[in-house]
């Protein structure tokens, strides 16, 4: 038995441009994650944001220091 859930995983091949791959590698390095884990986190965030925006909420970025607010438009 496992200490934490170990769901079955399915594999896929991902086709990215050089620039996209560089962005993925840079973010994975910055976040101290493998590229797979980085994409998994990105998908979770996307799901989370999409669920809330679909529910009528707005995605707003706020800078407390500059007292600036801007809405991220999800089109």
């Amino acid at each position: 038995m496992n200490t934490v859930p170990n769901p079955d995983r399915r594999q896929m091949t991902l086709s990215l441009t050089e620039a996209e791959m560089m962005a993925l590698e840079a973010l994975a390095s910055k976040k101290d994650l493998s590229k797979t884990a980085l994409i998994r986190q990105a998908l979770r965030l996307y799901q989370l944001v999409d669920a809330r925006v679909s529910n009528g909420e707005r995605l707003v970025l706020e800078d407390d220091k500059l007292q600036k607010k801007s809405e991220v438009m999800m089109l």
Binding site: K30, K31, D32, L33, Q41, R44, L45, L48
Partner: peptide, 15 residues
Amino acid sequence: TAPYQARLVPDVGKH
């Protein structure tokens, strides 16, 4: 498992 990130130095911003 998301969207929270570390606030403790030196791992600020990591998941």
